[in-house]
Every structure is written in structure tokens, then in C-alpha cells.
């Protein structure tokens, strides 16, 4: 039976507002909060007017506090307010021109299964590690150094490195490596998290979306914003190598995500029991249904 979605019942646990056969017990009206507030205000006001005002305030604070305490100690004062219950039907005022047939799939939101957000985070971590390979390859090929790409990334965080030469960036700098590690780790994690959050929108082909679509979107975004984020990186970045690194990141990320087990979304609950129990139907077919 559906019609008990909202029922009215007697309150069981509230100390303050007990419902009885005679009515509902509510706190009695009281003037003491007002008196106390006035007293405190007058105490303060005396600082800008006259000490007599403060003295009056002190008296009111004392009286208000005592009055308030007596309201609640040893027992909170209540008054029973009689209730009259009249039940009227709840109806929607809006007419329905055509009532759609309601079946088990009505209002279903798809997908029924997807990857968890953590799948994206794991993908981001492993993809971030994989991305180091083409980035370091770029450093070796162009500058014969293992450290150029790392230092270039780190330079975005060091204002003093803005004018440094390529020779400087090709040398090993512990601080630069540490900064690059921090920036790269954080970015990889966040990109993975973002990817994980977006996965329910396209759960079927993670390798395609992560490996090709996402890198081009990300590269486009960075291309427009890099001049603001890191001018030095913007001046010296090699975009083809960058895109290659992104694709490496995305392919590995998508591969790792694809290895993860899908989880069921809340919509799975709306399926008939027989489908949920695996006795009939198939999820693939259901996924293609329109909501």
C-alpha cells in the first residue's frame, strides 16, 4: 500500500513538546528573555550614555536571569494547547490531461551501473605516473636532460625562476623536483577525481573518453589559460609533446578504470526484483530504455 508515505503519529521522544490526548504541551510564553535582552543592552548602552543606564541594566539582567531560571528549573514550564484534528483530502490542484501508464521503469534514471569515483582517482594516479615517461622523453630528446620538464612545471610556482635559461632548467634542482612532484601529484589526483565524477555520464567506453576526448579537452582548456597560470610554461611548452603526454595519461587512466568493477547506482533499486535477483531480464537491454 502506497498511501502511508507520510503518516501522522504521536511524538515519541521529544521532551519539550509532548502530545497527549488533551493536546500538545508547549513552552509557556515568558517575558524574561525580553527583560534579560533589555538588561544586557542597557548595560552596554551605559558605556555611551550614563552609568545610571548601566546600573538599571544590571538590575534587569539579574531579574531577567532569575525569572528565566525559574521558568526552567527544576522543571520547564509548559502549557497544554488543545488540538482539534480535521482531516481533509490532499489533492493536486493541477489537472492531468493524459495520465501516462506507470510501470516499473517509469522515472528511471540511467545508468544502472557505473564506475565509482574512486575508479577515476586510481586512474588519475596511475595515469599521472605514466605521463612522466613521455614528459621525460621530451626532456631527453630536446634538452638531453632528465629534469627539464619537471623544472619547467615547477617554475610556475617560483616567481624567481621566470627568467631562467634552458640550461638552468636542465639541471637537477631538489626544490624544483619537489615542487614538480607536488604540482603533478595534485593535478593528477584532481583530474582523476573530475574524471571519476564524470564517468556516470559516459560509463561504457572509458578508454576512448579518457584516452582521446579528455586529453584534447584538457589541452584546449590549458592552452587558453596557461598564460595566466604559468607564463614561463606557456612560453616554453611544446604542445605536440604535451598532447602526447596527455594521451599517455588518458590511455593508462582509462585502462585502469576499465579494470575496476562497476557499481550499481540507486536506480538499480527501481528495477523489478526478478531482474535484480538475476532471474530475468538483462541490464544491457534496460540501459537502452528511455526514462
Amino acid at each position: 500500500m502506497r498511501n502511508d508515505e507520510m503518516t501522522y503519529g504521536e511524538e515519541s521522544g521529544s521532551r519539550a513538546h509532548v502530545h497527549s490526548a488533551e493536546g500538545v504541551a508547549l513552552p509557556v510564553p515568558t517575558v524574561w528573555p525580553l527583560v534579560l535582552a533589555l538588561g544586557v543592552s542597557l548595560v552596554i548602552s551605559g558605556m555611551v550614555t550614563h552609568w545610571v543606564i548601566s546600573a538599571l541594566g544590571v538590575i534587569l539582567v539579574g531579574r531577567g536571569a532569575v525569572g528565566w531560571f525559574l521558568e526552567v528549573l527544576p522543571h520547564e514550564h509548559h502549557a497544554t494547547v488543545p488540538t482539534v484534528v480535521e482531516v481533509i483530502p490532499v489533492v493536486s490542484t493541477r489537472g492531468i490531461r493524459a495520465h501516462p501508464a506507470v510501470d516499473e521503469k517509469h522515472r528511471k534514471l540511467l545508468p544502472i551501473e557505473t564506475f565509482s569515483v574512486w575508479a577515476g582517482v586510481k586512474g588519475g594516479i596511475v595515469g599521472g605516473i605514466a605521463m612522466i615517461v613521455p614528459a621525460t622523453g621530451f626532456s631527453l630528446v630536446r634538452f638531453h636532460s632528465l629534469w627539464y620538464a619537471a623544472n619547467l612545471l615547477a617554475a610556475g610556482g617560483f616567481v624567481s625562476w621566470a627568467g631562467e635559461s634552458n640550461e638552468f632548467l636542465s639541471q637537477f634542482h631538489p626544490l624544483g623536483l619537489l615542487a614538480a612532484f607536488g604540482i603533478h601529484a595534485l593535478t593528477s589526483l584532481l583530474v582523476g577525481l573530475l574524471y571519476g565524477a564524470m564517468l556516470p555520464m559516459f560509463p561504457r567506453v572509458p578508454i576512448l573518453t579518457a584516452g582521446f576526448i579528455a586529453p584534447f579537452l584538457w589541452t584546449g582548456l590549458l592552452h587558453s589559460a596557461l598564460a595566466v597560470i604559468s607564463p614561463i610554461l606557456n612560453d616554453r611548452i611544446d604542445w605536440p609533446w604535451f598532447v602526447a603526454s596527455q594521451i599517455a595519461f588518458g590511455l593508462v587512466c582509462g585502462f585502469v578504470v576499465n579494470l575496476q568493477v562497476k557499481v550499481r547506482t540507486p536506480q538499480f533499486r527501481a528495477l523489478p526484483f526478478s531482474v535484480r535477483a538475476g532471474l530475468e531480464g538483462d541490464l544491457q537491454e534496460t540501459e537502452s530504455e528511455e526514462p
Partner: peptide, 24 residues
């Protein structure tokens, strides 16, 4: 004064929708 003569019990974010549309 007491808002509800007897306190409601709810089963969704839109309790009045549930009352108005028990079929869905």
C-alpha cells in the same frame, strides 16, 4: 501554535508529492 496536531512521518524528500501521487 503546535504546527502539527500529530507529528508526520516522511519517507521521501517530497512527502506531499507522495500523498498526492500514491501511484508513483
Amino acid at each position: 501554535d503546535y504546527n502539527f496536531a500529530v507529528l508526520p512521518t516522511v519517507k521521501s524528500r517530497r512527502p506531499l508529492w507522495d500523498l498526492k501521487h500514491p501511484e508513483d
